[in-house]
Write a protein that binds this DNA or RNA. Structure first.
Lengths: 332, 332
DNA sequence: GTGAGAATTGACAGCGCTGTCAGCCTTGCG
DNA sequence: CGCAAGGCTGACAGCGCTGTCAATTCTCAC
């Protein structure tokens, strides 16, 4: 049989309530009692029942990770971060995919209401769904938005796309590049504009012109990267010496085109991407890119929900990205 | 205020118990009553409390997905499948990563014991950890192993690696290839041997010789694929016309080498991989590969845990893979 | 000493649901 | 018509824990 709190109480010679206090780190328990209870609990391998706890305290010790069809690796890293934080506080993470496309936004209410989670982490693109955000507000469920375009009144975690693009461009300039091509992301995606802005800022700061013929459209896909690269590289006498793609897939497209044109990367053409997807390390040469703090965003989001200490945390958290310099830009 | 079962009972003019019966699809409720209760429940937006349910019925309606550091996309698809099945039965999926490397196997007991899940899905490489499997058995927690090397006495879901490799090889032979190179996987991985066996069977079945110089070592990494490809392709007068790599990363390595050697894929060299990772679709040309039924394995595993109907299901479930024929082998 | 106040502890109710069991009301058949 | 067998329903206890509040003990300034 499973040991209950009563067993521990009896064995330790205290009341259930005291055991409860010890296990929840509540104040007002003598140190000696505390130690004794902890000992007994360990010896009996006692572990409290989530359900009973939840029922009595109307907390579930569950945090929901709500996502749509974002990329597996993105979600995976958010997960990992969230779990890390949750473990520390005895919480668990449950998964609740909601597909806007399949019109599941309406079900969100039932799904989220039923389980009664203590908090919800909303990942993009759901972090910008008014409907879901409304539901959460109406159900009065604490939530944190991951990388929303528009934080609104909810707490959120994000990174500074603009600054990342700026720094990456600065790095390229530092490597001696003055003529840099830039491949835009999908026009519907907010990050596209932010990354472009960062790129342009760095150029301007260093007195380099912003040339329209060096900024070409893309849509985050490998194929669009190929097309953009062809546009940027087709004229041998008028080529940028570096190409900064708004994400890794497109950068991979650039590398592939360079290969077919017999342009050595990075000697004749430096290439960098954005996001640090798994692809960046598989590619050859390995891709210089910007690592989003995905793991950290997951962790931070969970912490905000789980850590009751800070009663009034700042609403918006901007986390540090990292420039990952690899072989595709590094001259030996 | 949250609506409780009492509210519904009062409104529908029946007892709590009857409401409970309706909501749990138990027998012995008149159809009229059933309909009425359902109506009221919907109107009141009632959704039962997991915690209370769990406490009363000593079930948690939670299935744990336990994984180590497997690839994000693998876990993601298992997840998706498991969630699909769980939703149907009102269950939820919680995540419990356990790192053998960090010696967390001991914690497994506490982690799994505390939360009191109704079932556990163990993914590789954890599905072969004796320690974890023991813990589960001792805690008497129902569990399903995903793709274990050695199923033991626990139910499991898996695919037939050997047959997949055989069929892929058959396909290549059907395309007219008689001289096919094969790149082995990591020697520690059980799938490596199974895939090799399938490859050889197909050759033998068609009366083609098994040439040792056509079977080269690898370790599932892109880099090892590159090295293997160099070995297989370096002699222009003695080259296979197709290369079957034991996974997609290595196949990508082959494609990359072919590119540098100016060997057209698939015209001069057919290439295929295994696993259907995201990479396979990003690559250019897109990669012919074997799609593991990862999603299905997740779904099936969850079903086995959640569906109480089948009292005595078969222990081992072999799910269907799919040959994904793409451009890297297809002649126009 | 002594009383006020703080620290520590325990008794008890009840969180929202389901399992058990008893009771009623049909139905069908001799 | 009587009775057994089932279908349908509800009363009630209690799952294992925590919140509330009261009781007890300890501390320390005066």
């Amino acid at each position: 049989m499973k040991t209950t709190i009563t067993d521990v109480a009896k064995e330790a010679g205290v009341s259930m309530k005291t055991v409860s206090r010890v296990l929840n780190n509540e104040p007002n328990v003598a140190q000696a009692t505390r130690d004794r209870v902890r000992d007994v609990a360990r010896r009996l391998q006692y572990s409290p029942s989530l359900a009973a706890r939840g029922l009595a305290s109307s907390r579930s010790y569950l945090i929901a990770l709500v996502y749509d069809t974002a990329s597996p690796s993105y979600i995976f890293h958010i997960q990992a971060g969230a779990i890390e934080a949750c473990r520390k506080y005895g919480y668990h993470v449950v998964l609740e995919p909601i597909s806007l496309e399949r019109g599941e936004a309406d079900e969100a209410e039932r799904i989220l209401g039923r389980i009664g989670v203590d908090g919800v982490i909303l990942t993009p693109p759901l972090s910008d769904s008014e409907q879901i955000r409304d539901t959460l507000r109406r159900l009065n469920i604490p939530h944190v938005l991951v990388a929303p375009e528009e934080p609104g009144h909810s707490p959120s975690v994000r990174m500074d796309d603009t600054d990342a693009a700026r720094q990456m461009t600065e790095y390229l300039i530092g490597q001696g590049h003055t003529d840099i091509g830039f491949i835009l992301g999908h026009p519907d995606h907010g990050a596209t504009e932010r990354r472009r802005k960062g790129f342009e800022r760095a150029l301007t700061a260093h007195g380099h012109p912003i040339r329209d013929d060096r900024i070409v459209p893309g849509d985050f896909s490998f194929r669009s990267g190929v097309e953009a690269a062809v546009r940027l590289l087709s004229d041998p006498r008028n080529r940028p010496t570096a190409i900064f793609a708004s994400n890794d897939d497109m950068a991979a497209g650039v590398v592939s085109v360079a290969g077919r044109m017999n342009l050595a990367v990075p000697e004749e053409l430096a290439v960098c991407g954005f996001d640090d997807t798994p692809l960046a390390q598989i590619l050859w040469p390995k891709l210089t890119t910007v690592a989003q703090p995905i793991h950290d965003m997951g962790r931070k989001a969970a912490e905000l929900l789980v850590d009751r200490h800070k009663s009034d945390p700042p609403m918006q958290h901007t986390l540090d990205f990292e420039l990952v310099i690899r072989e595709s830009t590094r001259l030996a």
